[in-house]
Simulated assay, not measured.
Amino acid sequence: DRIEEADVYVQTERLLDRPSSPLYIPQVTGRDTATQIEEGDLFNFDIEVKPIAEVLVGKTSEQALVEIAEEEEITRIREQHRKYEELRNSELIELQRFEEQERRLRTEKERRTKQAEEAHRQEQELAEKMAARAFTRAYLQDLVPSVFHNLRENGFFYDPVEHETESTFMPWLMDRTMTHVNKLVIGRSLLDSTIRDVVNQRIDQYQRIDESHRQVNHSSKRRSTTRENSVHGSEKSQQQRKSTSGELRETPEDNRDETNTDTS
């Protein structure tokens, strides 16, 4: 489905300018009348004008006198103003002279103050420079030797022979010495272990001998107790005891001699 369409044109009416409004004329009221004045009806000019002329002349003269007085006053005022201007100018000149003098004094004071400050600053700088120079001299007095000492300690300055000795010969010598010392230590440890074994063996032998002697003494004591009633048995037991004690005395001395011989 299609919507129906149509074109329509409309033209407005032409507007006309508004006409100008007519001049307003108010409505006349009342009646118009007229009168006639003859010569001499109102006043006589010669008689009436005299006081007016006198007043005008008097006012004019008075005004002229006032103007003359004003001019004279203006002249006096101008003269006073001129004198005042001259006095003011002279005072201004004097003031300018004083100001210039004050400015010169102030400038001179500032210049002297700056000179004094500059002199004080230069003296202070000179004192600081002298103090810094003294401190630097005192500081550098030990600095150069310490620097050379540190450089020498750090190996920057060295003797070639000493350096070669310390870097090559001394390590080789220390290695050979340590090798020899290690060999001596090993030999001494082996010798100590051998001596220790021999001493332990001797101690074991002495302990066995001591046990055998104790057994002999114990058996002799038993024999002496069983033969207390017989005199012959007692004498024989005493002889055996003496012989046994003599053997015991000889045996420890022999053992001591053997021990000293082995230890040496």
Rank of each mutant, 00 (worst) to 15 (best):
H218V: 11
D159G: 00
K221H: 09
L143G: 01
G155F: 03
I186W: 07
V185L: 07
S193D: 11
L143I: 04
Q141F: 12
N200W: 08
S220K: 09
V199E: 13
E228A: 15
V216M: 01
Q240G: 02
E153C: 02
N154P: 00
Q238R: 15
Y206P: 03
M178S: 15
R152E: 02
F148W: 01
R223L: 07
T165N: 01
V181R: 13
V161C: 00
T226N: 08
S167Q: 04
Q239E: 14
R227P: 00
T177K: 14
Q205E: 06
I195R: 10
E211L: 11
T177Q: 10
S245G: 01
D204T: 12
E247A: 13
D192A: 13
V198Y: 07
Q207M: 14
Y206C: 07
R222G: 03
H180E: 09
S146F: 12
D159E: 06
G233A: 14
V216R: 13
Q215S: 14
V216K: 08
T165Q: 00
T179E: 07
S212W: 08
E228P: 03
M170H: 05
N229R: 06
Q205V: 09
G187M: 15
R188S: 14
E153L: 10
F156S: 02
T179D: 02
K236S: 10
V231H: 15
V144T: 09
S237H: 07
D192H: 13
N150E: 12
R214L: 12
R241I: 02
V199N: 13
I203F: 08
V181N: 09
D142M: 06
G233L: 14
S220G: 06
V216D: 07
D204L: 10
I195C: 05
R176T: 07
F156C: 03
H180F: 12
I186A: 08
T194W: 07
P160C: 04
I195P: 00
S220L: 15
P160S: 12
R152N: 06
D175R: 10
S212K: 11
P145I: 13
R214K: 14
R222V: 07
Q205M: 11
Q205I: 08
T168H: 05
V161K: 14
T226H: 09
V161W: 06
S212F: 09
S245N: 10
N229K: 05
S237F: 05
T165V: 05
N150I: 02
H213Y: 14
Y139E: 09
V198S: 05
E235G: 02
G246P: 00
E247L: 15
E235S: 05
M170F: 13
T168I: 05
D204R: 03
P171C: 01
N150R: 10
S193V: 06
G246Y: 11
K242L: 12
T179W: 04
F148S: 07
E153F: 06
E235C: 05
T165S: 00
G155N: 06
E164Y: 02
